[in-house]
Write a protein that binds this DNA or RNA. Structure first.
Lengths: 233, 233
DNA sequence: CAGATGCGAGAGCAGTGCTCTTGACATGGC
DNA sequence: GCCATGTCAAGAGCACTGCTCTCGCATCTG
């Protein structure tokens, strides 16, 4: 019977998932540095070597948590975008930014794992690059929709994009089809500002600088929206 | 003789410095996670317990490295600012941004220690807050000079700063006396963008996105300068 | 010149990631 | 049904970590 084989594989899948869940719990409380394979095994009533049947190393377990983290923030961003009237492009952008911030503040250690220092030697590029771009796709779609519907006015002021940047902008434009260079290059800046603000907040840099951090964040995000040419609210 | 007392104390000071230097070397090659007190002791020909006479814990040694790191980037920023004609406020801002980026790319692990995930439980606030603000003081002075000399034109467009933010903006204004609210609030955004861009680059987020990262950085920094009201070049 | 103090060495504890071997169990072909 | 095959948990063990403690020795202080 293939069901018995399935039983074995299902047990493996369930145990793998349980390891990930417990590891995420320990990550949430102790941070990435405090995550211990032995502690995970202990909490599962297993011995440490048994865990290595499911994850060949601690870094692989961390990589899995990273992928799941990107997926979680991507999910939050997509839901936030879907909850707003599609024609309200500025509202969508603001909602998406708040979704990132809210998720990061609720999962600071997971956020640190995604956007803080690379914990192992360096990041495994292939596995994580897909989920990592999930949120960027949403930003791109918002800008693309705004441009296609004529709601995005081409920003003026500031220097024009340097010619050698054309290839790079073309690649980034894949996430926001049709959008002109001046908007693409500012989109990258907005992306950096978003995560810069959130990182400052999560990592404590803003602690001694700003008190009403939610108000500042909201205002900054709206100002940036205006800068890139999105309509005011 | 106080010279013999000085000899003892000087030996202590020299050994402390040697520990820090070796630790910084190991930080540069192995990263913060790989920095080991025992390895430092080994490289010094000491036994590990002896190092604890100089630093009560590994976290204290890391804190020292953090303070030195903030000092180093602050130094780099101040030198970059001083090397430009003081009246060329935009040039000063661009130079300062490049100084941060250059330092970060040259010392990625140290940068990660400063602006990546907080490695120990959490950062000791009092000791690090002074050196951490050293670069921000330079940004503030540039904007303050620009405003005082009439070279900074009040930016328009975008929503006005919310009233509840007045207190926070007043506090931030301490670093850029006289500058109006609309500029202060954008200065915070610029600060976040600067470190967001550098973090994306140092942490590898841009690896699969942009190739001519120096060109993009320079252009972004100049665009932001125009956004905050600094004159074009 | 004593006594107090600072310092390095060594042993030791608890914890970590990871490897290897051993024995029990389920799976699948004959 | 049986037996080889592969999977699995367990345990021991290695090398490493941060950190604590004690013990002598050198240095400094009154």
């Amino acid at each position: 019977m293939s069901s018995s084989q399935t039983a074995r594989r299902r047990a493996r899948a369930e145990l793998t998932q349980e390891i990930v869940d417990i590891a995420r719990g320990q990550l949430a409380t102790s941070g990435a540095a405090g995550l211990s394979l032995r502690a995970v095994a202990r909490e599962m009533g297993m011995v440490s070597s048994a865990v290595y049947r499911y994850f060949p190393s601690r870094d692989d377990l961390l990589t899995r948590l990273i992928i799941d983290g990107y997926d979680a923030v991507g999910e939050a961003v997509e839901q936030a975008d879907a909850a707003v009237d599609p024609d309200d492009v500025t509202g969508r952008w603001v909602a998406v930014c708040h979704a990132v911030r809210t998720w990061a503040l609720a999962h600071p250690h997971e956020y640190a794992l995604l956007h803080g220092s690379p914990v192992p030697g360096y990041r495994a590029p292939d596995d994580t690059v897909g989920p990592a771009a999930r949120d960027a796709v949403v930003y791109g779609r918002i800008l693309s929709d705004a441009w296609a519907s004529g709601r995005l006015v081409l920003p003026d002021g500031g220097p024009p994009a340097p010619a050698p940047l054309a290839d790079d902008l073309e690649a980034v434009r894949a996430m926001m089809p049709g959008v002109p260079d001046a908007v693409v290059v500012r989109a990258v800046a907005l992306w950096a500002t978003l995560y810069g603000m959130v990182s400052f907040e999560v990592f404590g840099t803003f602690d001694t600088v700003v008190r009403l951090r939610d108000v500042l964040f909201d205002h900054t995000v709206r100002s940036l929206a205006a800068w890139i040419g999105l309509p005011g609210t």
